[in-house]
């Protein structure tokens, strides 16, 4: 049996380990499990980046036909990730700080950091300055759903807030109360 990479319908290149049947089982040997988990984390983040997915839920391993099918299942070898296994991977991701439980106080859904909040902060500031919107008051909606699609299109508000908080700390943004709730204003900074 030869284990090969595979390109999915969405154009994502799955690594060869994804075609190995035991990859879909939690490993009882802790060293082996650590290796497998690292592979899973890399794969999940890579796929999330490819498809611009921000959330992963334990439920995604329970239901079919969702955004994660291509990764959580391998129909060619008839294997799938079981919910308990996925739950373990999510926990490992949170521990490694490449995801956070969102909302907090539950452990079934994570928000993925395929870019760190710091990287998002930079992206956000670059976007605001390159589109000439420094010092303009913007609503969160203006950012997550701009008329011209940007890298930030579709970014979840909790993640956006984290990025803004980082910029605010550096004196490059200010959160402002406006009629529809909260808005933000960006500054050039130093």
């Amino acid at each position: 049996m030869i284990f090969t990479t595979h390109t999915t319908k969405s154009g994502f290149l799955l690594p060869s380990i994804h075609s190995a049947p035991p990859f879909f089982t939690e490993q009882p040997n802790p060293a082996t499990q650590a290796i497998a988990t690292d592979h899973w984390i890399r794969l999940i983040l890579g796929y999330a980046r490819h498809r611009k997915l921000f959330f992963l839920k334990v439920e995604d391993a329970e239901t079919s036909s969702n955004d994660w099918d291509e990764v959580l299942k391998n129909e060619r070898i008839n294997r799938k990730v079981l919910p308990s296994h996925l739950s373990y991977v999510l926990e490992a991701m949170v521990k490694k700080n490449v995801a956070v439980y969102e909302p907090s106080k539950q452990t079934r859904t994570v928000m993925l950091y395929w870019r760190t909040p710091e990287e998002w902060a930079e992206t956000l500031h670059n976007w605001a300055s390159s589109t000439g919107q420094l010092t303009t008051i913007l609503t969160y909606y203006d950012i997550t759903d701009p008329p011209v699609e940007s890298e930030l299109t579709g970014i979840p508000v909790p993640l956006l807030k984290k990025a803004i908080a980082i910029l605010a700390k550096a004196g490059k943004a200010q959160v402002i109360g406006i009629s529809e709730g909260e808005g933000v204003r960006f500054f050039a900074g130093n």
Partner: peptide, 26 residues
């Protein structure tokens, strides 16, 4: 740690995979 466990094996339910005997494409 010379093999991996597969609990979804179609025939036996439980199979072991020896990576050093598997051929990988990197």
């Amino acid at each position: 740690g010379l093999c991996w466990l597969d609990e979804q094996d179609e025939h036996e339910g439980r199979a072991y995979w020896v990576p050093s005997a598997m051929q990988w494409d990197l």
